[in-house]
Design a protein around this nucleic acid. Structure first.
Lengths: 210, 210
DNA sequence: TAATATATCCGTATAAATACGGATATAAAT
DNA sequence: ATTTATATCCGTATTTATACGGATATATTA
């Protein structure tokens, strides 16, 4: 049986070492290294392409878990990150999911669950528990807002705007004068309480209007 | 025991009626109505505030499931939508989650699972199975990209741009000439292959750069 | 070492967006 | 029936953004 090569990256020594001891009992799991921050982990990663799984804390000095996730992606490494965090806020979870985490566990997860998930993830499957999913989804839906803030025309203009069309192009497309489109845009900007088009697109994107 | 008042909204008559028959066997579930499209459902919803759960198809004539989810939110109704769909693509799932769905099931879900979830959701809890979560999360992470496309300065400029600062304001903030910021923006636009700032912000937002 | 990416600066010209002002006709809501 | 929201149009002035052109110094990478 092939063993699962695993690294622990966490800045709390006791947690890190405790976890290592705990994993020693499992013959299919091989804790090859323990590191105390993200930078250190990336250094190890660069010289080691045999790693299967990393148990990754979010809050660490030098380089935090989010940055590590990104770095793993840009280095094109196949190590599968499992986030182990004390934070159960939806935005943390969503951010990790977006950035390529294979799972997200809380630090009070029980041992059996942890082992189960290490095994699932080492096989290349992502696993987010219903409880964690629920938090993430609640956060995601909080961020959105009814489409009815904007009128149909405004919504249409916003859509085209976000596709990179200029005022004139939109006007041509909708068979009205550019002046009308300018007014529409001005009204949209006022409604969403932003300063200009750039901020508008960001906000519209955030609240799911486009 | 309080019964769960439920509506089925699906444009396939056989599926709709079959489901109704199936749910009849459960004494805690009361199928109060069946409708064939989104518009019809919203009409029923407006005159009925006692509904607990709606089993909602996505592809329906007149008004699709996504629009229905939005309408439920804008009408401030407490009915909890469970999506029942044939599509298991991540983008569908993510969109439903964002728009307030309480669960997402495939049409081949087994009966016990369906009943279990109706009961969970009627109690006000969202439930997305690990399998469905996995699809959604895979989609979400596909949409993102390494932060290393842009240089640090470019990333910084993009960030400020998305906050609604003008070129001049950014230049002042970063102690360089406006011309430099203009160049940065032009380079960012080129790198992300977009036409202008509006499209840039949309894309940057989509691939998680801001 | 040579090539490439980055960060900085400049000029000129045109196109586009923003900020004001005001107007009208229709539809929807109170 | 009166108010409110929507969609449409116009003028003027200023500020920004875009599109070209080119240049230099410093890192980083191959």
């Amino acid at each position: 049986m092939k063993t699962i090569k695993l690294i622990i990256a966490d800045d709390h020594e006791l947690f890190r070492n405790g976890l290592k001891e705990l994993l020693k009992k499992y013959s299919d799991i091989d804790v090859v290294d323990c590191v105390a921050d993200g930078k250190e982990f990336i250094d190890v990663l660069k010289n080691n392409s045999e790693l299967d799984v990393v148990l990754l804390d979010i809050t660490m000095p030098n380089m935090d878990g989010f940055e590590v996730l990104n770095e793993i992606k840009s280095l094109n490494k196949s190590v599968k990150p499992i986030i182990i965090s004390m934070h159960d806020e939806g935005n943390y979870i969503a951010k990790c999911a977006k950035n390529g985490a294979y799972s997200y566990l809380l630090k009070n997860t029980d041992q059996d669950e942890l082992i189960k998930i290490i095994r699932i993830v080492s096989g290349g499957k992502k696993y987010f528990s219903p409880k964690i999913s629920e938090k993430m989804i609640n956060y995601m839906s909080e961020q959105t807002v009814s489409e009815h803030i904007l009128s149909k025309k405004e919504q249409e203009v916003l859509e085209l705007l976000s596709k990179g069309l200029t005022t004139k192009e939109i006007a041509l497309k909708l068979f009205v004068s550019s002046r009308t489109i300018e007014t529409h845009r001005a009204n949209i900007i006022k409604k969403l309480e932003v300063k200009n088009t750039a901020e508008l697109i960001k906000k519209a994107s955030k609240i799911n209007l486009i």
